[in-house]
């Protein structure tokens, strides 16, 4: 909007820059803190730059504590959940948008109806179900309930609705089977929507806390957030260096991925309105 003069523009830049520094300071503090010793982190007043930078915290996370395992668990669960959502949700989204079959409206109504149901409503019966299936404290117990979701279907359906129907008709005339049409004609066109859904799903899974906290019960199945939360409230509560390094390990991979894909990401948020 044009009405801003040069002088007030400088004020605006100053204000925005101060705000930006305030917003990202916790991250800088976290990363710098992960290289500090425990003694330095307890120092009053606190130091900004590490005085004796050390990798000891990270070394301990991976040797004494099992952060390697937690990292692997988080990655496996997030990858499986993402692949599941991309595949199954695009299949349903396509079917709902392009194909005619009995029960279609009912399925779509079901999906819309459950779009708003939060995890806190279902976790108790879900836990009983998973317990009866013998999947408590296993990786499948962590990812199976999240392989599909109403949000992904909704997103995919909206996107497929924007594709021309003639594409499918033409492929049928050429003699392609219905599955070939989906996998070879439609799926490649869905790339932008798949990227958006993929990033959102991966992040959601990586940062998910309540369900893994409920299902994972030993060191072998903890995900990163669960392990970090339990360490930070348990016997390692005072191990400031370890906790800062742990937080860095949870946040940093996501931060890197985000910086690479940020444009697509922010467009995805703006169009779907849901994080």
């Amino acid at each position: 909007m044009g009405g801003v003069g040069a002088r007030s523009r400088w004020w605006l830049y100053l204000l925005l820059t101060v705000a930006l520094l305030v917003v990202i300071t916790p991250f800088i503090w976290m990363v710098l803190g992960s290289f500090k010793t425990n003694a330095e982190l307890r120092q009053v007043p606190p130091t900004w730059w590490p005085e004796n930078a050390t990798l000891e915290n990270f070394r301990q996370l991976f040797s004494r504590l099992s952060f390697g395992t937690y990292f692997r668990n988080s990655t496996v669960v997030a990858v499986v959940v993402t692949v599941g959502n991309l595949l199954f949700c695009s299949m349903v989204g396509y079917a709902l948008a392009m194909l005619r079959f009995r029960g279609k409206r009912l399925i779509f109504a079901l999906i819309l109806g459950t779009l708003m149901i939060p995890g806190v409503v279902t976790f108790v019966p879900l836990f009983v179900l998973v317990a009866n299936l013998g999947l408590v404290d296993t990786l499948p117990g962590l990812f199976l309930p999240f392989l599909v979701g109403p949000f992904g279907v909704f997103l995919m359906r909206q996107f497929v609705l924007g594709l021309p129907k003639d594409l499918v008709e033409a492929a049928r005339i050429d003699g392609a089977g219905e599955f070939r049409i989906f996998f070879q004609v439609i799926l490649p066109l869905l790339t932008p929507a798949l990227a958006t859904l993929g990033i959102l799903t991966f992040l959601g899974s990586w940062n998910n806390f309540l369900w893994p906290l409920v299902v994972a019960q030993t060191n072998d199945t903890y995900t990163l957030p669960v392990a970090l939360a339990l360490y930070s409230t348990g016997q390692n509560e005072q191990q400031y260096g370890l906790l800062m390094a742990g937080a860095t390990i949870v946040v940093l991979p996501v931060l890197v991925v985000f910086l690479i894909f940020q444009r697509r990401f922010i467009q995805g948020i703006a169009t779907t309105g849901i994080k």
């Binding site: 992040l203 940062n207 939360a229 930070s232 906790l243 949870v250 946040v251």
Partner: peptide, 9 residues
């Protein structure tokens, strides 16, 4: 985009 657990710590 960051884990609430991590930033809470």
């Amino acid at each position: 985009i960051t884990s609430i657990v991590a930033v809470a710590v």
